[in-house]
Amino acid sequence: MSLDRSDELVAPTSSAASGAVADSAVADSAVAAVGRVSLWRRLARDRFALVGAVVAVAYALVALAAPLITRALGVDPYTYDLDALGPTGAPAGPLGGISAEHWFGVEPLTGRDLFAIVVMGSRTSLLVGLGATVVSMLVGTVLGLVAGYFGGWVDWVVARLVDVLIGLPALVFMIAVGAVAPEWFPRLLLLVLVIGLFGWSSIARVVRGQVMALRASGFVRASQALGASHAHVLFRQVLPNLASTVVVFATISIPGAIGSEAALSFLGVGVPPPTPSWGRSIGDAVTWFSVDPVYLLFPGLALFGVTLAFNAFGDGLRDALDPRGGGSNRRRRRGGAR
């Protein structure tokens, strides 16, 4: 989901022209044409992508081990330390209160440990990023499958769903859904669902295209002739052929979803506090920039770093899959919104 719909729109949409052109590049030719071995060889040659992959894995490890890390260091993102603040609520001491006790300094107005906030914030970012991507992929793949396989009115319905989705302002709906959802419903899950449900149109389009191609091919028709059920053909025969496409697509969707979470939190409608979130920290830090620039540095770098890592890796992956080597012209969902 993107906040400014420019992103949303441009991600392959109903238009025959834009994204579809590009998506089909990956979809139709790439995956099928490239063997796994040569894929890894290509990928291994792309140092930028490799660095991206390593960094992305490192982020994931930090997120997994975040409670251990903070506990080992004796910090947590919730405990106030008003002694670390000056009389105005700004961190006491230079560089945002960086000290042996607080490696990244402290948060203004609360004195909470910024290192713990950034480390624990990785969980929020990655959880929402990965969760929303999984939702998008699930919904998009299933709808793309049925649309492409059955065609006709099913296809029409899916196409109209996509049309409506593009027309809806995601941000407004996020806010409204957040308000309508009952208070006991976990906000993190809600965020995952909403971001995920606004992001499935491009994968659906690609899958649809591939399924249409496969349907026309011999083996699907042969199975049908042998009396295989639709479900069998769809999930046993067609779906496995789409696996690589979905994986690549998922990789390049992650930074967009992470960016959306951060943007929503920046606007104050993301994860509720005190659950740490980089986007919210950035939103707060920007107002403190002239007094305490260090506050912006760490959450900002963390968000930028993870987005860049996933983008670099996803990009390399796509290039490796596209044997023409021209790079894909597909427009990816970008991190954040404009």
Binding site: A263, F266, S290
Partner: peptide, 21 residues
């Protein structure tokens, strides 16, 4: 191309606010 990927990865609000400052 690296510049382009970097540009794609930067959140606009961050860049915008830093630009203002």
């Amino acid at each position: 191309m690296i510049g382009a990927i970097t540009g794609v990865s930067a959140p606009s609000y961050l860049v915008g606010l830093l630009g203002i400052l």
